[in-house]
Design a protein around this nucleic acid. Structure first.
Length: 417
RNA sequence: CGGGGCGUAGUGUAACGGUAGCACGAGUCCUUUGGGAGGAUUUAGUCUGAGUUCAAAUCUCGGCGCCCCGACCA
């Protein structure tokens, strides 16, 4: 991608009012644009990060045997009546009347909708278990949207639902999902801790939350760094410095965390409401046992920024970086230099290396350096008169200070392996 | 939803109740070109509605919006 063609401009000044690091950096680096509190546009660079995060999620969900589908955001009140949540969610769900006076709402979550859907398909124990997921816009009329893209009013959620014949089957899948979630966060460059939390509205049994440690968070978690034991402060009152109840060797710390994922054992609450039943081997009608599993895509993206940045800008992990390499063309570009730079650019493209080519004219070297640090691609490659005479490019990692001058071909071979 | 802070140009900021100014950005020209270059010139603004006043960006009230703390987080 040629930077000169991108709808894109970085800002030197900090956005007034924005205190959250993710908001400051993502806005300055032009990854996102705020339309209203908690509602953002994703500009080309931000869009690519979001896509990469979603792709990682997809791969891990598919590996669990779950199939992707898409349910509607626009939903009739009738779908919510059986569970009784239409009234309960009044404060947080966008609910309104359409032109014919019918009550409709925008989806905050899809337990009701997916239960209705499955009700027409699942009849027998032979139909179970089944797992489906979607990645879709959710709307929540948050009383207070905050912390940049960490808590939005319109946001993307990966929500997965599982259907089982019994608790044992749910339990098995739930444990697999737990591992898959940890892998998703790890692949996004985040160390997550699984905490037990209250099931909220959903279930009597506790749910699990996936916490990432960062001062930007809004949750307090007791954590044992030695064995990874973690428990949400809502449900446990330890004292700081207390011994870890699991490994007994570590000492508990109270840390601030962001909840990047949440999984619930729903049991039969929603299946009973939706008449989602199946016949077991004896022909007895039983309610399907359900689980639900959520990841906030933009929240995850924002958390990555909160964890991976320095005073100059973002440091994207390679797995989610919008591009792998930032190619900068420096200096007064003679025709010869331009040709050389284009050649390097095409070489990267041909090799399938994702490259952002800062081919902007009339932009000083200093400005390109500042922009590159702010945008935070993992690698920076420079072409200039200096490197051209050697037929080489100068390579530097965003998070390291040293650089080296190599042939583009050699570098491609290096990062390809 | 309670409490607090704040709304001036695309962005960041000034202006005692009395001429809306500066910087960055953007446009044009010249000089520059390895860590946000320099000069000349142009562009563009008081959130909104009432009120007080000879006079309001400035004071008062309402509305709208943004940020922060708390509550909430299905």
């Amino acid at each position: 991608m040629r930077q000169s063609k991108l709808l894109f401009k970085t800002q030197k000044t900090l956005p007034k009012d924005e205190v959250a690091v993710n908001a400051q950096l993502l806005i300055r680096a032009n990854f996102v644009h705020k339309l209203m509190a908690g509602v953002y546009s994703y500009l080309p660079l931000g869009f690519r990060v979001r896509e990469k995060v979603m792709e990682i999620i997809r791969e891990e969900m598919n590996a669990l045997g779950a199939a992707e589908l898409l349910m509607p955001s626009l939903q009739p009140k009738s779908a919510w009546e059986a569970s009784g949540r239409w009234e309960g969610l009044q404060k947080i769900m966008y609910q309104f009347k359409d032109h014919s006076g019918r009550d409709v709402g925008l989806g905050v979550t899809h337990e009701e909708i997916v239960a209705l859907l499955a009700q027409g398909i699942i009849d027998s124990y032979a139909d179970l278990p089944k797992y489906v997921y979607q990645i879709q816009a959710k709307f929540r009329d948050e009383p207070r949207a905050k912390s940049g893209i960490l808590r939005g009013r319109e946001f993307t959620m990966k929500d997965m639902y599982s259907f089982h014949a019994d608790e044992k089957s749910l339990e098995d899948f739930y444990e697999k999902a737990k591992k898959a979630y940890t892998r998703v966060f790890e692949r996004c460059g985040l160390k997550s801790y699984v905490t037990e939390a209250s099931g909220g509205d959903f279930s009597k049994s506790h749910s699990h939350e996936f916490m990432v440690e960062t001062p930007a968070g809004e949750d307090e978690t007791y954590l044992c760094r030695l064995c990874g034991f973690a428990r949400n402060k809502e449900i446990a009152d330890f004292k700081k410095g207390e011994r870890c109840p699991t490994c007994t060797a570590g000492v508990l710390e109270k840390v601030t965390t962001v909840e990047v994922g949440n999984i619930f054992k729903l049991g039969t609450k929603f299946s009973e409401a939706a008449n989602l039943n199946f016949k077991d081997k004896e022909g007895t009608l039983k309610p399907v046992v359900m689980g639900s599993y959520g990841i906030g895509v933009e929240r995850l993206m924002g958390t990555i920024v909160e964890v991976h940045h320095d005073e100059r800008g973002i440091l994207w992990p390679e797995t989610v970086a919008p591009f792998t390499i930032h190619l900068l063309l420096l200096g007064e570009a003679s025709e010869e230099l331009q040709k050389f730079a284009d050649g390097v650019y095409h070489e990267f493209e041909k090799a399938g290396v994702e490259v952002l080519f800062d081919d902007r004219m009339k932009v000083s070297a200093g400005e390109k350096f500042y922009d590159a640090d702010l945008i935070g691609l993992p690698w920076r490659a420079i072409v200039s008169e200096k490197t051209m005479v050697q037929g080489k490019i100068e390579i530097k990692k965003r998070n390291e200070s040293g650089s080296k001058t190599v042939k583009a071909k050699e570098f491609i071979a290096e990062i390809k392996q």
